[in-house]
């Protein structure tokens, strides 16, 4: 019991994911600043942002649903914590996997988006509702190719669906990235990950114009701090999920740890560079993009996986 609490709260659960999430969001801001030829914030900046937000007054709008408004960030935070715990425990000891944990991870990774949607609709603000409805459309758009891409490794491994067994399959044979179907699915998954993390060119729900903040518009103080922390933790957790599915996770023996961290850093750099070099799409362009070219590409990946390539 105490061990389970330790796993969920300290390592690899909430504290570990939150601290690395702060570090990763700083890396994002620093690399963005360097790309724009400026200096960028100091290392502890996300920590200062978080503490400052905790010290601000929390205001719940009168026209909104107060309890839902105040408690919606907690669902997203809890879901991200559980996913991070599951992924790291599976990487450390793959025999701790259980049947269906891949499906649980996919399901839990949609909950942060749902908490944004709930919070946006509970704000009683028309701009927040608009942002929340765009978030709903984005979830409908990118979940289809994302799930197709995530199931390509399952098909390629002839139906192994436990995360731990998938990891061991990749350690025994080559990583899924080395095959054509895996590579196509990886590209699709990266683009869907960009949408899942609500980063440019798909940050349509939040930064609709730069004037208002979409579903976050009425949030202040501690709930806003939790929303931001959830976003930073997602920036850490979703690429780790992709590393587990396509690149064989992080092997905890000797030099392989460094190699695993480099895999994650590579994904992070791809995300940041896509973020800095693209304009934002309109919502209809984004939906057409995900249901058109991305789904076709994902289906090609699935067909190639069935053929064993």
């Amino acid at each position: 019991m105490a061990k389970t609490l330790f796993y969920f709260i300290v390592f690899p659960g909430f504290l570990f994911t939150a601290l690395i999430g702060l570090l990763v969001s700083w890396i994002d801001r620093k690399v963005t600043a360097r790309v724009q030829w400026r200096v960028g914030p100091p290392l502890l900046q996300p920590f200062y942002d978080f503490v400052k937000l905790l010290g601000k007054e929390t205001i719940a709008p009168q026209a909104g649903a107060k309890l839902t408004f105040l408690f919606s960030p907690i669902f997203g935070l809890a879901a991200v914590t559980i996913v991070s715990t599951m992924l790291w425990l599976v990487m450390i000891s793959p025999e701790k996997t259980f049947l269906g944990d891949l499906i649980v991870v996919i399901y839990l990774l949609t909950i942060p988006s749902i908490s944004i949607i709930i919070g946006g609709f509970a704000s009683g603000n028309p701009l927040a509702s608009l942002g929340a409805s765009r978030e709903m459309k984005m979830v409908l758009a990118y979940e289809l190719p994302f799930i197709l891409a995530i199931f390509t490794p399952v098909i390629k491994a002839q139906g192994i669906i436990r995360l731990g067994d998938l990891l061991q399959y990749q350690w025994a044979n080559s990583i899924f990235l080395n095959s054509w179907s895996g590579f196509i699915a990886f590209v699709v998954a990266i683009i869907c990950m960009q949408a899942k993390l609500a980063l440019v060119p798909f940050d349509i729900p939040e930064a609709e114009t730069e004037i208002v903040a979409g579903p976050y518009i009425e949030y202040s103080g501690a709930p806003l701090a939790l929303h931001k922390l959830t976003r930073w933790m997602m920036l850490f957790v979703v690429p780790i999920f992709l590393v587990v599915m396509f690149m064989g996770g992080i092997l905890f023996s000797g030099w392989h740890i460094l190699w695993g961290i480099l895999k994650y850093v590579l994904l992070l750099l791809i995300i940041i560079l896509i973020r800095n070099t693209n304009p934002r799409l309109r919502i209809d362009q984004a939906i057409k993009f995900f249901w058109g070219p991305m789904t076709i590409l994902a289906v090609i990946g699935v067909i190639l996986a069935f053929l064993g390539i």
Partner: peptide, 13 residues
């Protein structure tokens, strides 16, 4: 931004 100053759109932030 190196001083931590960001422009926000919503008065609540």
């Amino acid at each position: 931004e190196r001083f931590g100053i960001l422009l926000v759109g919503s008065i609540r932030h």
